[in-house]
């Protein structure tokens, strides 16, 4: 278990569902068509004459006790010190165990490289003291990334 823990937070009251985070992620991670590590969804309900619509941006939850990490025999999924569930493409053999194990259906299979893939919270950017690319893409600043025991350090945003 990690001493530190990381989490994305979405202020769903502010999200305009524009998709900037989704495309920024796709661009940064050089992903194939049909493969996205972050997706924007819009949900609509209509109940008792009341219409409700909300946007939501979804990506890896970087679980404390991640099923993908536990199931991966090749240690391709691993926990970093600051609580990110990262992914080592070199080690992945494309067995898809993580895809089956994740309760949130986060890892995706990349046909082109025959490996799995998922959000690593841009650990390269974190190492430089910067935010994940999706966080800095949001036009309304509704997406944040916190190191949980950082007391939501506002300087990160």
């Amino acid at each position: 278990m990690n001493s530190k823990d990381s989490v994305f937070a979405v202020d769903a009251d502010k999200c305009i569902g524009c998709g900037a985070c989704q495309i920024a992620c796709k661009d940064k991670n050089n992903l194939e068509l049909g493969v996205n590590y972050r997706r924007v969804f819009t949900t609509e309900t209509y109940d008792k004459q009341k219409l409700k619509v909300w946007h939501y941006t979804d990506s890896c939850y970087h679980c404390r006790d991640a099923a993908c990490v536990k199931v991966c025999k090749f240690h391709a999924m691993y926990n970093t010190e600051n609580g990110v569930v990262a992914f080592d493409e070199e080690k992945c053999v494309g067995c898809r165990a993580c895809i089956a194990a994740c309760p949130y259906h986060i890892p995706v299979y990349r046909q082109a490289v025959k490996k799995a893939g998922k959000c690593d919270a841009c650990i390269d950017l974190l190492a430089m003291g910067r935010n994940p690319v999706c966080v800095d893409a949001c036009p309304v600043h509704c997406l944040t990334f916190h190191l949980r025991d950082d007391n939501h350090n506002e300087n990160r945003i």
Binding site: C18, G19, A20, Q22, I23, A24, D27, K28, N30, R130, V133, D136, A137, C138, P139
Partner: peptide, 18 residues
């Protein structure tokens, strides 16, 4: 390789949209 947008201390930042 990729595209980033305004991450300066500008207030407000001129962030690119989708």
């Amino acid at each position: 390789l990729s595209i980033a947008t305004d991450d300066s201390r500008n207030n407000p930042q001129l962030r690119a949209c989708v």
